[in-house]
Write a protein that binds this DNA or RNA. Sequence first.
DNA 1: GTTCGTGGTCACTTGTGGTTACCCAGAAAC
DNA 2: GTTTCTGGGTAACCACAAGTGACCACGAAC
Lengths: 129, 129
Amino acid sequence: MVTKQLNGSDDADLLRADSLAREIFSDVANKWALLIIETIGDRTRRFTELRDDIEGISHKMLTQNLRMLERNGLLERTVHPTVPPRVDYSLTEAGHGLRATVDGMCDWTQRFLGHIEDSRRRFDTPVNG
Amino acid sequence: MVTKQLNGSDDADLLRADSLAREIFSDVANKWALLIIETIGDRTRRFTELRDDIEGISHKMLTQNLRMLERNGLLERTVHPTVPPRVDYSLTEAGHGLRATVDGMCDWTQRFLGHIEDSRRRFDTPVNG
DNA sequence: GTTCGTGGTCACTTGTGGTTACCCAGAAAC
DNA sequence: GTTTCTGGGTAACCACAAGTGACCACGAAC
């Protein structure tokens, strides 16, 4: 994480920003968080929809990550006090910003899929000799 | 992870690509991997350099992630059979591609730092009443 | 009064990130 | 010639995080 030199900010600010940036980065750079961001996308989604769409995520991990994302202001959580309860999630502006970079990662994956597959095969092949 | 519809590929191909994409995504979407990619950057770095530059990473995690990245063809590992040993790491084309998106994430972090900090404060403040 | 449906929590088990200690092989110090 | 230092890897171990499953609240439907 390289902190850019901004005119007019102190070193203290930069240091704080750097450590905070590291923290945010650690929070956000995990597969569930990114997958959730990507799955919500432009829409407003309910808890169970997300749970069904994100293959392999557990009930608990979903809740946990949604909370974390909400805390970081990446998504908005709306509770409708009905019975049964209904909770909606949608991305904030910051969330959409992050989503753009996640899209980039998805594109990257598509682009280098073949390369990666080859590379893995080569790596996993036992060396003969 | 949305698989784009490509002309001329079968469904089987698409399915394989999708599951592979998920796997790659899981591998790569972790803080150490991304931090390593970002830290290597354009240069050729030695093991210990990386260990020193990536704050908080342990010996083992570095080795483990470097291996994983090598396996996925994101970086190249060059061993010089000297004593003491010397091992160089540098990004491949695919690695540089991923790095571009990681750069995007870093920019995003910088941009929304303030927003995130506010949001956290609000979230962590106990509700009075 | 039993069952179902939704979002969440809690207790428990399993897996994996992280720490530590040790290994290798030779060069240089002594 | 014995010791020490070196840089990178690895196996054993531990702690905590992820994953699993039960249970809860609440009312409507049956």
